[in-house]
Nucleic acid binder design. Structure first.
Length: 631
DNA sequence: TTAGGGTTAG
């Protein structure tokens, strides 16, 4: 049994176990440890219960084998009762069991208890130290993790590869560089797992090129390294590279895609709006047998929803045999983003009828959908029912949705007082909703008050300065607008540049405003000049109010015509056949002049345009937008 | 017969 279990053939071990007529504690324990060693925690807990029922009293070996299952499954009560049993039974000190408890409580997030067990241990080895260090690390107590690491070193223990992994997973760059020397001295620098973990550290810190350098150093790149690098390209918005990387990865021998790599690629397609690549991945996952995977399925629904293809999203959803809350959430938020508020609410009701209980994200998606569709009454009603009907305490995300809902409908004062009344710390997104609404509804007095609070709350956010400066500009208060711009420059904060992307024949093209060095700049410029003339003839007037700079109207127009959205629209019209949908993704919110221009383009060129911005979808057709100008 | 590590959606 042990031989089979040790090389991953637990089922064989189970067969032998069932054939043993005189089972004893040792045979039971081998089965148990075989299951936990192979990640079959649920079955391990079942076996443990069976032992309890049969009154087979576990010894220290049995207990140290089952504890990882409790930790991984979050079985807090069961874990605690076994801890009580251990104390009551007066077992002698055992480093395996005690370390197991430290690890288990760490996984429960109970660091105080974990530390207490650790402090009371009479013997500790490297594994015990690693358990407490990684516990602090996983529970985001970096300082404490480092303190324990230093204490361990003072005790004369060097630490091993697991110690290094815990410190890397602190995801703290300063720590990363501080322990680099330790990594080199320890000789683990060339370990593949360490390299992968370091890649993750770089990617999370947005140093994608550094991550790629490590990736290239890895001689035998495994699926995890490939997937992590894919996430790196995708997370940094380098979608062209992401798609190339994925294709390259599929060409590698001995690489078999798994659900994680598929989900990572689908998530990239979802963020970028790469529908054609998304469809390819959809076909690929069916070919590789992942059609019944509920995680992959949710990622497919999310991808189609984020590519404005709700028909495909719904089709996949209906086709899925097993659905959990996340699948429903993906569909609901899809309807919300595209402005189909009633469909979102309908789907929400259907989900409840199917017997599933909504979770926090469900309610965020539904409230957000109401906000996008301007369904004020329905949104407020759902918000009021949250606590009573679904036993969900509104989080700051829910408040943010409702504040947005009220603000946009013009009830800015109500929204402001709701924010002041709630028992949570107001977040930046709430202030942003209020400030944008103050701008739209020209409530400059409240806008001024809100902006003061906002700058105090988050003085280091460039976006807030821009918003504030834009509001001053709209109010004609150029002095304040200029001052705000100057303080932004002085503070050295960088605002995120607006980028618009479009996928043409599976290739991604990204544009930045006034980017004259773009390889397609000249042909786009020429096309765009003709486009502007055509839509002007149809009645388009450039909205120079969208340019928040104190310059002449001609310069303002020049700036407007170089917006990244317009460059992408022009490129899309140039490179796609008449009748096809032009799909664009923008990382920030669409500007109001580009919104107006898109409506005219859809009419003059008889094309459907979809623009996904940071907030929602705009579908332009025959001179109108699906958002009904509500955004 | 016993404990610990790198990748993933909403």
């Amino acid at each position: 049994m042990n031989a089979y279990a040790s090389c991953g053939l637990v089922s064989k071990a189970q067969i032998i176990f069932s054939q043993i007529s005189n089972k004893n504690l040792v045979t039971w324990t081998i089965l148990l440890s075989g299951l936990t060693k192979n990640g079959r925690f649920l079955e391990a807990v079942d076996v443990f219960y069976e032992m309890v029922v049969l009154e087979i009293r576990p010894n220290e070996i049995t207990i140290s084998s089952i504890l990882p299952a409790f930790g991984k499954l979050g079985r807090v009560l069961l874990g605690k009762s076994v801890h009580c049993y251990w104390i009551r039974s007066n077992f002698s000190d055992n480093v395996f069991v005690e370390t197991g408890f430290v690890d288990m409580y760490s996984k429960f997030g109970c660091m105080k208890i974990a530390r207490n067990v650790f402090d009371n241990m009479s013997v500790r080895n490297v594994v015990s130290w690693n358990a407490i260090i990684s516990g602090y690390s996983e529970n985001r107590c970096g300082e404490e993790a480092l303190r324990m690491f230093n204490w361990m070193r003072r005790k004369g223990l060097f630490g091993d590869i697991f110690t290094v992994m815990s410190l890397i997973s602190l995801d703290d760059f300063t720590v990363g560089s501080r322990i680099h020397g330790f990594i080199v001295r320890s000789g683990y620098e060339n370990d593949q797992l360490i390299k992968t973990a370091l890649m993750g550290l770089y990617i999370n810190g947005s140093f994608v090129n550094d991550a790629y350098r490590i990736f290239e150093e890895i001689k035998k790149k495994d699926l995890i390294a490939w997937t992590l690098m894919l996430r790196g390209f995708s997370k940094s918005g380098n979608w062209r590279r992401a798609i190339e990387h994925f294709n390259e990865m599929m060409g590698e021998d001995k690489i078999m895609l798994d659900s994680v790599s598929l989900i990572t690629m689908l998530s990239g397609c979802s963020c970028s709006g790469a529908l054609q690549q998304g469809r390819r991945v959809h076909a690929l996952l069916i070919k590789s047998g992942f059609q019944d995977d509920i995680f992959v399925g949710t990622a497919v629904i999310d991808m189609y929803a984020n590519c404005a293809s709700m028909r495909d999203a719904k089709m996949y959803f209906e086709w899925m045999a097993d659905k959990d809350v996340a699948c429903w959430n993906a569909l609901i938020s899809g309807y919300g983003m595209i402005g189909c508020g009633n469909e979102a609410i309908d789907t929400f009701l259907k989900m409840r009828n199917s017997g599933l209980s909504p979770d926090e994200s469900t309610l965020v998606s539904v409230l957000c959908a109401c906000s996008h569709a301007g369904l004020v009454q329905q949104g407020l009603q759902i918000f009021d029912q949250m606590a009573e009907v679904w036993n969900l305490i509104p989080s700051s995300k829910h408040y943010a949705c409702v504040i947005d809902l009220l603000s946009r409908s013009g009830q800015v004062n109500d929204a402001y007082s709701l924010m002041k009344r709630m028992h949570l710390q107001p977040g930046v997104e709430m202030y942003s909703s209020l400030l944008t609404a103050c701008k739209i509804h020209r409530n400059f007095e409240l806008g001024d008050e809100i902006s003061r609070e906002l700058i105090q709350l988050k003085p280091n956010d460039a976006g807030q300065y821009v918003l504030l400066s834009n509001m001053y500009a709209l109010a004609g208060n150029w002095d304040c607008a200029r001052m705000t711009r100057i303080s932004l420059k002085l503070s050295n904060l960088k605002k995120i540049p607006g980028l618009s992307s479009i996928e043409i024949n599976g290739e991604m093209f990204t544009f930045m405003a006034s980017q004259t060095d773009h390889p397609h700049y000249l042909e786009i410029k020429e096309f765009l000049e003709g486009l502007i003339l055509k839509i002007e003839a149809a009645g388009y007037e450039p909205d120079t109010n969208s340019v928040h700079l104190d310059v002449s109207d001609d310069v303002k127009k020049d700036i407007l015509f170089q917006h990244s959205e317009k460059l992408a629209i022009a490129f899309g019209l140039m490179r796609t056949k008449p009748g096809t949908v032009v799909r664009i993704t923008k990382n920030l919110r669409i500007c109001s002049d580009c919104h107006t221009a898109s409506k005219f383009v859809s009419k003059v060129y008889a094309r459907v345009l979809t623009i996904k911005d940071a907030n929602r979808f705009h579908v332009f057709g025959d001179g109108v937008c699906s958002c009904k100008d509500w955004w």
